[in-house]
Design a protein around this nucleic acid. Structure first.
Lengths: 154, 154
DNA sequence: GTAGAATTGCAATATTATAACCTAAGGGTA
DNA sequence: TACCCTTAGGTTATAATATTGCAATTCTAC
């Protein structure tokens, strides 16, 4: 994503997708779940569970670890959020609802994360399955370096 | 790696490489660092830092978290160990000394981890750099599924 | 042998995540 | 409406993973 985009659109789109997925699956997008998803989408940087707690508290929500972890688990399950395990952090998913291999590029300068195009990840998985004789069921790819903006700035 | 290989060779080879790298770099493979590396190589499964502590204690080493984390940091820096962040665990590196992108396939059945061939990872990185306009400096790829042995067993 | 750097010992604490148990809220059905 | 059942949330405690800070020791180069 670029530095200067209509981020309101990102949030609205994410909330809309989550709502639709919930309707399809008979799941409930409760206030605390909705708010956690909004907070995760406040920018394109991964955010830690414990960073969400005070923000939830400020909104009058209960703010104990299980509350935020339960909301995160729900959103992960729904596929609208991913976990970046190298950072112990969470980020909104660009293309939720599609079952696809996931990965992110995280700029070490600005901290923004970009979801990796699924087609490359799928291709890698196929090549590895052929070469190693394994069957891949899930995976996470976490890359870091400089994004194009930070590269030109440097 | 196969189920029945000469694992003594894996260990010996890993220790030998670590020793050589240390000599090259003027670093010291102290007893606790050596022992941690041996313990990591006791099999091909990722192992947690806190699992190493009692084993170090049994050998008469100091056994407090900083001891093992310092040894792990040293070995990570040296490139002979990798961290599997999705498991909060550590594993020995097959091809240490070469600076290359790293990734592992971990069998969800037997727990064994196989290092992914660098060439595929390099190719992916190049494709992503071209497509996203980023420069990738490091990355980790953590895949899971069934290894070939467990697939045929099932 | 001494100074400076690297390593280790040790105690405390930070950070991330989960368990267990109970209460409340939604949703269907007689 | 009254009832039942399932899901969600509140609360407390604790588990699991990792780091900080400082003192003591060991190593190495001079």
């Amino acid at each position: 994503m670029s530095q200067h985009h209509d981020h309101g659109h990102c949030i609205a789109s994410a909330m809309d997708t989550a709502k639709k997925l919930c309707e399809q699956q008979g799941a409930r997008l409760t206030p605390v779940r909705r708010r956690v998803l909004e907070l995760i989408w406040q920018n394109h940087k991964p955010i830690g569970a414990y960073e969400l707690l005070p923000q939830l508290a400020a909104d009058g929500f209960n703010s104990a670890p299980p509350t935020v972890y339960r909301a995160l688990d729900f959103l992960l399950e729904l596929g609208v959020v991913h976990r970046i395990s190298s950072l112990n952090a969470f980020i909104g998913c660009d293309q939720p609802g599609l079952s696809h291999p996931t990965g992110f590029f995280i700029c070490k300068e600005c901290g923004n994360a970009t979801e990796l195009p699924a087609k490359h990840l799928t291709k890698l998985a196929q090549a590895l399955e052929a070469e190693l004789g394994v069957s891949i069921e899930s995976g996470s790819h976490e890359l870091s370096g400089l994004c194009s903006s930070c590269r030109t700035a440097a």
